[in-house]
Design a binder for these strands. Sequence first.
DNA 1: AATGAATGAGACTTCATTCAT
DNA 2: CATGAATGAAGTCTCATTCAT
Lengths: 216, 216, 216, 216
Amino acid sequence: MVILVAMPRTAPEPRRLGRPPASDAHDTRQRILDGARAAFAEHGYDATTNKHLAVAAGITTGALYHYFDSKFDIYVAVHADAQERVYSRFTHAVADTTTFIGGIQAVLDAAHEMNTVDPTLAQFLGAVRVDMQRHPELRSALGRHARRRRGFFDELVERGIETGEIDVTDRERAQSLVRAMLIGLNDAVSDDLTAHRLAVEGLKLLLEGKLLKPVD
Amino acid sequence: MVILVAMPRTAPEPRRLGRPPASDAHDTRQRILDGARAAFAEHGYDATTNKHLAVAAGITTGALYHYFDSKFDIYVAVHADAQERVYSRFTHAVADTTTFIGGIQAVLDAAHEMNTVDPTLAQFLGAVRVDMQRHPELRSALGRHARRRRGFFDELVERGIETGEIDVTDRERAQSLVRAMLIGLNDAVSDDLTAHRLAVEGLKLLLEGKLLKPVD
Amino acid sequence: MVILVAMPRTAPEPRRLGRPPASDAHDTRQRILDGARAAFAEHGYDATTNKHLAVAAGITTGALYHYFDSKFDIYVAVHADAQERVYSRFTHAVADTTTFIGGIQAVLDAAHEMNTVDPTLAQFLGAVRVDMQRHPELRSALGRHARRRRGFFDELVERGIETGEIDVTDRERAQSLVRAMLIGLNDAVSDDLTAHRLAVEGLKLLLEGKLLKPVD
Amino acid sequence: MVILVAMPRTAPEPRRLGRPPASDAHDTRQRILDGARAAFAEHGYDATTNKHLAVAAGITTGALYHYFDSKFDIYVAVHADAQERVYSRFTHAVADTTTFIGGIQAVLDAAHEMNTVDPTLAQFLGAVRVDMQRHPELRSALGRHARRRRGFFDELVERGIETGEIDVTDRERAQSLVRAMLIGLNDAVSDDLTAHRLAVEGLKLLLEGKLLKPVD
DNA sequence: AATGAATGAGACTTCATTCAT
DNA sequence: CATGAATGAAGTCTCATTCAT
């Protein structure tokens, strides 16, 4: 006896021409952005192709251009989106603290938690700096955002000077160091959650003077 | 009857085919490597074209293939070359010190000096990590080198444990932190010599416990 | 119980789906034709996109397909429309004259006046010949119209033979020349009203034998 | 018994990778130009694809870019080539004459002969005016050449004024008319050799006052 | 009757690589 | 050893057309 059953197809049919049923512009746009963040984070601006972006969003390459004028514009939009998410979170975290060390630790904790929830954010923002350096157009398009980022950490140092944690003559040293440390944490270890947690713990100890004991 | 006379050419001919008289294989190979380091550092693996590499070496794209089988191989060779230069220098610098802090400081000083003499080294090594992440082939080809890099810093931490500067229970925290810090210094500020110096000074102060004063 | 109240909208909604209340099919069709004539005249068949046509008609690209099956069909319809306007005007103008020279002058005057009122007509008809040559489909679709055009001028020559202005042995020379002259006037100078007027005046003088004086 | 013979292949093998034997840069470049002239003349700038140009030259689309930076540049190069050929010929032809009418007739004869030998020249130059109107980039790139063209005919009118054939007050009428007539001859009938000859003969008669007899 | 999301084919261009010279 | 002509695959983007709403 043979039983014929309507089998669910294993490979999804290629979509038909024309507007698909149940399509929603806002949804699609967000799918493009989310897929693009992951793709750009993994492959960088150059190596991420149109095809990557389209497949990640479940559409064809042509349809991308219904939402954005160019791959470049997609990158810029992803960046604005990511930057907004991260720094609004950081700003909230820092608002609950009063000291420099407290602020740094709050940022580290927030970064670690965000990285746990969605690692593509950190990966993408780490990749941005490199892509910006490699592509002058990106540099000028994202420059404004980059200044916001820097401003955020400079204000944290300023707070440290006000509280007396940092000597005013060390302002610039502290600014450069903070930038280097946080970028290091992001770029070096954010792709390995355990290493990230360890480095964050190590840095907290170091800041509190508990990591190193002097020997003569 | 035909008379052959050596005619003086009025206009300089474009370079002829065949082996140019003054070429030296070893020289050319090194020119390729040096030019490629700068190019890869600036544009990354993808955006660096064979034309870039050829022009930087003063030859044509076809000639590249006398020295290397592919662009990929050139990248690997540049990496081996750069890695060797940097870590033999670091090894020497560390050999003159006995403590963890002393070793770190010696590495920082060496890094800053190398960066002053030839910034393409630091830039290239910063770019490598990104390119490795973006290209699986590179990851597997350069993995061995990466392990050497990591081993170098892990040994420095080991030394800190032996001298008592670092508690053995903090080993992994220290390892992750050292990696993050040095990568941060390289990636975040090595393109700006002043910022690099400031961050290095800041880090030295921090390690000595002199950057931050606790407030309650 | 449900209370329905006509709510005043605060912000004007983007146009809703469905049939707009104030639309008139015939109007829209003519708007498409008028906009298309100008667009095809300016950019030609290839470079004119459906987006151009839609914007010029104040609708979207999808809506074009309610009125025409394809861009090709729009072109054909524009051509029929333009041809009809021009040649009904020419036919009237010629009807008031009796000689070959009189007919030609009437046509020249009519052409100049139409060009003053709406230059897109002349521009479009000038563009058609080129587009026909470039696209075999257009050639076969518009061939019938082209034969009408040619017939019109051939009849004018025929009249010249009847009146004795043109020797019957010169029939074909005159036909070819008339075609070349009128096309030249249209293509070469119809985009510059002053030049067009000057050329028309010059041609009238030439036909009357007053432009050139023989020298030996 | 089986006899094996080297059979000539009916379909030519696709060319292999790498430099083909017996390849010559200058030859290829000229093949590109010649093929492009015909293609641009037939299909116009827009509808002529890379593939057309490549096939006409017997190479692949990629190889085109070994010789020119863009399709645009190929068009410009074809134009410079065509313009040079035509106007150096015209200049020679006119040099043997002394009157306006003589010059015009010499030009007409030269045009007809060139058109007999290689019709693509006239076709291409006819197409240029249209393409220039449709593409602003072409307009600015070819503007200089266009002015030369116009200058040539204006000088012929100047000569007519000097010889007394044309009244000085008719200068601009004559200029516009000459332009329109020659463009008409080129655009309207140059694709039909017989019609071209007939129109040229008709124009000569008209200029000599022998085509039309006045009736009252 | 109209919108606008989506497809798919194809255009222009770049580039790593190959190979005759 | 070196040049530079050529390929072929792939990438970004455009556009006529289709179709759910």
